[in-house]
Design a protein around this nucleic acid. Structure first.
Lengths: 229, 229
DNA sequence: ACTATAAGTGTTAATTTTACATTTTCACAA
DNA sequence: TTGTGAAAATGTAAAATTAACACTTATAGT
């Protein structure tokens, strides 16, 4: 086929993944010590380059898997960063993706053979290039999403307590929630099932475990309900 | 400087601009008849290619200016589209940008020498490649933005009537608004100045003109107020 | 001066959001 | 066995916001 584009510039396109995990009280992100120049040894997001015949979504998953062993994670495209000198090594753009994962569930995958590690976002480690900017943008996107979609459940174990859910939302939104109002709100959404099981690790009384009911949620969305915390 | 990226693929990166304008009752977008292959003669967004040493934001403005004569428009990045066969001519990604402009104000710029024309989004013309998908995404972004930022004012003349503002929001949100509630809401935001002038073209009684007070708005935002229609 | 037409204006009910404190349960220690 | 400490569970009333709704006013043109 004839193409008319042959005098246009071709450019390196990187991808960087902001992987959020939640651990008791804190939002964490997965970072890696960069083992090649430039900026070798500094902390970086999980990143790599797009191949010629790859969809960005695929590339993001390939890169995540290659560097962490984690797979089958739903990632969402965040933004394409394009400052001319953003990478001192060579001119590259980078499309950032972000995802939420449940730390425990993926810790088997993320084992010793990978250099990636969890860092609390409250400690805000300094990253190479424009990666801090990427993280900031991801956090604000996460906040916006968290109040309009039940996105947070991805960060919790399958069974969780109301307290854990509340802590999670407090971490994402970075603000305290009133316990009773929070529980009432969640219950009114009617997308959780209360199990006949208690978590006994946090108190003598024990607290009931809940599960997110995806089918119920999907059905409600179909009927035009909007989730809003 | 030494670079370690030399075995990575380089890729063509296009940009496409979704330019919204508003005209009495309808949201419009600016489209162009494509004058080169592939898909020559079909309708397309305003598009072009990123150059090696250009920021995406710059490129979007350059492309818009080149194809329409319109300049100094604030465009926001929307999404990067990357289906492998999205352009049958050659493998390209495309980063979409969108902007809101005031049709009258830019019609002098957009003169005969340019092929770009306004099309109502309600007529939903069929576009090349994945451009319809881009437009859909831009519209939903626009809706989300419109209820949380006073973004709509960019689409109106400097002086406008409440009726025009209401029509605009009805077009963006695609739903009727109650006249009294709408006006009360807008007034309670307290970011408009009522002028001592009337627009006499639409009724015998005439209707007062208003102006958006950007300084007042910025000051309020600084004090932590959130605009929400 | 009459008429036709769009502009302009407020109130009440319904819903949602916020603030807030006591009782319950149970493991463990005495 | 009884008592104690610690977290879990629970409801209501006030405040704020949103939604529904219809008549009066101003004016140009006849």
């Amino acid at each position: 086929m004839l193409t008319s584009y042959n005098k246009e510039d071709k450019i390196l396109l990187a991808l960087d993944c902001i992987i959020f995990g939640f651990d008791k009280n804190d939002l964490n992100i997965l970072l890696i010590k960069r083992d090649f120049e430039p900026e070798k040894g500094k902390l970086s997001l999980i990143g790599g380059f797009l191949k010629q015949s790859e969809h960005l979504d695929e590339a993001a998953n390939r890169i995540l898997f290659t560097l962490t062993g984690i797979q089958n994670v739903y990632m969402e495209q965040l933004y394409t960063f394009s400052k001319v000198d953003r990478d001192p090594g060579e001119r590259t753009l980078s499309t950032a993706y972000y995802a939420l994962i449940n730390i425990e569930e993926h810790n088997e995958q993320l084992n010793q053979q990978f250099a990636a590690q969890w860092y609390s976002i409250t400690e805000a480690p300094e990253l190479i290039f424009d990666h801090n900017e990427m993280v900031d943008k991801a956090i604000s996107r996460l906040r916006r999403r968290a109040i309009s979609k039940p996105i947070g459940f991805e960060l919790l174990p399958e069974k969780f307590t109301m307290k854990q859910l509340q802590k999670l939302y407090e971490a994402i939104l970075d603000e305290k929630q009133d316990k009773r109002n929070f529980i009432n709100k969640i219950n009114s959404l009617d997308v959780l099932v209360k199990l006949n099981e208690k978590d006994m690790t946090s108190s003598r009384k024990g607290s009931f475990l809940y599960q997110f009911d995806k089918e119920k949620y999907d059905a409600k969305v179909r009927d035009g309900f909007t989730f809003k915390i």
